[in-house]
Amino acid sequence: MKEWLAGQKALFVLNFINDDRWRYLTDGLVLTLEITFFALILGLTIGIIIAIIRATHDNAYETMSPGPGKVILKLLNIVSKVYLTVIRGTPVVVQLLIMYYIIFATSNNKIIVAVLAFGINSGAYVAEIVRSGIMSIDKGQMEAGRSLGFNYVQTMTGIIIPQAFKNVLPALANEFITLLKETSVSGYIALQDLTKGAYIIIGRTYSAFMPLIAIALIYLILVMFFTWLVGRLERRLRSSDH
């Protein structure tokens, strides 16, 4: 028993203490959070815009009078549909590699490439979530907003989206957690995120157990923490309209 403990301690020192190897994990964690955060912002922005385009098309296209507005809406809707199909129909790793090796072949800012790839990917899922939220709002809300003199976009952003958001918050939280975990493939474009950090340690120490368990625990704690945070936010939002 004592020997076993001593062995574990030696492994711990080897994997994390020697040469300050713990820094691969902390630096990696910071990068993982950075990529996740900015990809989340980008994904939400893209997602909300695409959701508004899709919902507007589904609700209003039929009744719109002919004109340039109608043509533009049709085109935007087609572009949105292609985007959704392509992004949701291909693996995120492949999208990341295409972004790095083909689209941004001349750029060497890998973090921006990763944020773009993960953000554009997440946007597709956010779009469908937010769209279902918009569709769940009674159409009387839009009519009330318009009858007060708000234009379409003001009503959408000031009245419809906030309510839709509240309805789909659990689904969005899931999407965020998925995004956080998906960034673990960032190592494919040689970014040193949390997962890659563990990989590098293993490469130095030839000992896989502790680094892998360590990052698994870190991901798990992060996910549990964010789940708790979203739960609190949800309760606060719900208490505002009882």
């Binding site: 009387g140 009519e143 907003g145 906030p162 309510q163 505002s240 309209d241």
Partner: peptide, 18 residues
């Protein structure tokens, strides 16, 4: 602009619940 001068009241109220 014109709707700002025309108030409307609906059967189902349509207050903003949030």
């Amino acid at each position: 602009k014109m709707r700002q001068k025309m108030g409307m009241v609906f059967q189902s109220f349509n207050l903003f619940p949030h």
